[in-house]
Amino acid sequence: MIVGERKPFDEIKESVQGYEKLLIVGCGTCVSVCMAGGEKEVELLASQLRMTNKLEGRDVEIGEVTLQRQCDREYIEPIVEMARNYDAVLSMACGAGVQLMADMLEPMSVIPGLDTRFIGIAEEEGIWAERCRACGKCVLGEYAGICPIARCPKSILNGPCGGSQGGRCETDPNRDCAWALIYDRLNKQGKLDSICRIAPPKDFSTQDHPARQVNEDYLKAEPEETPVQ
C-alpha cells in the first residue's frame, strides 16, 4: 500500500486559513488502512479544526466526506457538484489522489492533508515499513525477495557495505541491514551463488518520470464508438 502520514496540525491549520467553507475529503483505500487519511481521521481532523476555530473565534463551515478512492475519476465524479459549494478542499489522499481531485475540481484550491511517505507493508500494528521504490524493473527474484533498492539506504546492488554490524544498518540501530537479510535467506536457500557475482549498474531509465503505462490489449478490447448516423 501507499503509506502516508497526516501533516502536523499547525501546518494544516495554516494552510486552510482564510477559507470559510472547507470540505475535508478522506480516501478509503491505502491511507485509510495506514490510519492516516480514512473516514476516522477525517472525522478527527474536522473536530480538531472546529474546536480550534471556535476557540480562536473563526466562523468556518467544515464538511466531511470519504471516497473509496481519490485516484480514480469514477469515485470523485459523484461529489464534484457538492464540493463546488465549498471554498476549498483538504484532501487526505496520497499525492496522486490530491492531484486528481485538483484536476477534477479546477479551479478550486485542493490542499494536501497528508505527507505521502512510501510503498510499504504493515509490519505490525501501528508500524509500517517501506518495501518498494517503484524502480520500474523488479530485481526481487535475484535477492531472495528482499529489495536492496528500497531497503538499503544506499541502494547497493553489490552489498553488504562496511557498515553492516550484527545484522543492523550503520544509519540506524533499529534498521535491519537489508544485505544481512539477503545473505541469510540466500544462505538458507543454498543460493549464495547469486550474490557471488557482480550485479551490473541498474538501468534507471525505467524510473523516468512522469511515468505512464498503457495497456494496449485493454484499449483494443474497448468497443469502438458507434459511428454517427
Binding site: 553488504p160 562496511g162 550484527g166 545484522g167 545473505y183 549464495l192 557471488c196 557475482r197 557482480i198
Partner: peptide
C-alpha cells in the same frame, strides 16, 4: 577498493572482496 574485515556477515566479507577483485 576498500575492504572491511570487521563488518558483518564475516563469512561473506571475503566473497565481497572476490567480487571487487573480479570487478
Amino acid at each position: 577498493a576498500a575492504a572491511n574485515p570487521f563488518a558483518d556477515p564475516f563469512e561473506f566479507r571475503v566473497f565481497r572482496l572476490a567480487n571487487k577483485v573480479a570487478a
